[in-house]
Computed example of a mutant assay.
Amino acid sequence: MILGIGTDLCNIERIEGTLARFGDRFRNRVFTDVEQRKAERRKDTAGTYAKRWAAKEACSKALGTGLRMGIAWKDMAVTNLPSGQPVMHVTGWAADRLKEMTPLGHEAVIHVTLTDDHPWAQAFVVIEARPLAATEVPPQS
């Protein structure tokens, strides 16, 4: 079952300007150390940051909260599997919200896809609830 869907479109040149203007202050406020290391290794540093920015915005929308209801930027982070597939991780308030919206007897799976075509970066996030096997279902209180 689908619990939430979010999308965002981000202008890479806007992120590039923000990086030039605010540098580490922007990077450290919005992106985890892992995300920063990934972006700084890439030729298209601004594009890499822009895709992750879009993913965070899309995730907050899929969680049904936006970024004004307590979720911090770093509560959502994108890493990549060895295959290159992006994966969204949530912590803090975002993880609490995900747990709250996941029905009993289900596990939440966050799907994320990223793309860019200069000057645009785009992300889609779908949050799915998958039924747990009968042996995995926690007892009701």
Rank of each mutant, 00 (worst) to 15 (best):
H111Q: 11
M88N: 08
D116N: 04
E100D: 12
V78T: 11
A95L: 14
T102K: 04
N80R: 13
V87P: 01
H111W: 12
V87K: 04
A108V: 10
T115S: 15
W93D: 14
V109P: 05
L104M: 08
K99C: 00
E100C: 04
M88R: 04
A108Q: 03
K99M: 07
K99W: 00
E107Y: 00
V109K: 13
E100H: 09
P82M: 10
G105P: 08
A95Y: 00
T102S: 04
T91F: 13
V87M: 05
Q85L: 13
V90M: 07
L104Y: 06
D117S: 12
H89T: 15
T91H: 15
P82Q: 10
D96A: 13
D117F: 02
L98P: 07
E100K: 09
H118L: 09
M101N: 05
Q85Y: 04
D117G: 08
D117E: 15
P103R: 03
E107W: 00
T79L: 06
G84N: 03
W93P: 06
H106T: 07
L81Y: 09
P86R: 06
A108C: 03
A77N: 06
L114V: 12
V90E: 01
A94F: 11
D96G: 08
A77Y: 02
H111S: 13
A94D: 10
T102R: 02
H118K: 13
P119M: 09
A94K: 01
L81E: 15
N80S: 13
